[in-house]
Computed example of a mutant assay.
Amino acid sequence: MKKLCFILATSLLLLSACNSDNDSDKSEKKSQSESTKKSKEHSKAKQKENDSQNKSKTSENNSSKSSPHNKQQQDNNNTQKQVSLNNITDRATLESVIYGNYSEMDKIQAYNSAVANGVIPQGNVMEGPASAAYQSSLRVESGAEKSIYEQQGNTQSNTSEQDVNAEINAAQTKDEYINALRKKYHGGLSTQELQTKAAIEQGYYDGSKEEQKAIYDEIQRREADIEAGKYDQYKQ
């Protein structure tokens, strides 16, 4: 009888242990299921937040691309690519260069081209930025300022002046261009060269130090050629 009771007690203990294990397994599985569910919900919320941010950035980028300021900047860049600095034939193009995002060297080059093409008269500013030379040209044109070049212009025929300007614009090589400049400026440095030299010396030239040095050295070489008498045939 005692043996039978022991067997029953042992069976009850084993059954109770099994039930406890099953309850523990069920609780653990339920906990894991809830954790997985929360993780999925968090991932979905995070993805939704990222999608919202991406849409916002895309909208801002599109708005920025279509803004008037950026459109104007793009138009300015396109204009710069289309302008021929060696052949300025109208005042609007000249002003777009003079007051645009160009180097001082480019501005002076455009100014000299406009003068050579008769767009504006030669100004009296020999040293300083191209904008100052342009303002002087406007004053000469309006009669508010008398040109210092009038007497020089009177010593040459109109045909001769047109020929040398045409030669400057038609120059295909660097030597041809410099030689034509010497003809126009009677064997000396051109207005462009003088203004560029002054801009570099006075520290307001728009360009890198390497570019400034290269240009300044080139102007000094040209001055040396002039002093050596290379262009004496053009002196008056």
Score class of each variant (00 low, 15 high):
202 Q>A: 13
234 Y>T: 05
145 E>K: 00
129 P>W: 00
193 E>Q: 04
26 K>V: 09
216 Y>N: 15
222 R>N: 06
185 Y>K: 00
89 T>S: 02
4 L>I: 10
196 T>M: 06
173 T>L: 04
11 S>G: 07
143 G>Y: 03
101 N>L: 02
70 N>G: 15
210 E>M: 06
61 N>T: 04
137 S>I: 00
15 L>I: 15
211 E>K: 07
217 D>K: 09
220 Q>N: 11
236 Q>L: 11
85 L>H: 00
57 K>E: 10
123 G>L: 01
48 K>V: 13
69 H>C: 11
23 D>Y: 07
236 Q>N: 08
196 T>I: 09
154 N>C: 13
79 T>E: 02
105 M>V: 07
68 P>D: 08
44 K>I: 06
110 A>G: 04
233 Q>P: 01
175 D>E: 07
62 N>M: 05
5 C>N: 15
82 Q>R: 09
97 V>D: 05
93 T>V: 02
218 E>V: 15
86 N>V: 05
46 K>I: 08
13 L>Y: 15
58 T>Y: 06
146 K>R: 04
68 P>A: 12
163 D>E: 15
6 F>H: 14
96 S>F: 07
157 S>N: 11
50 N>R: 07
29 K>C: 05
7 I>Q: 11
142 S>V: 07
100 G>T: 01
38 K>E: 08
27 S>K: 13
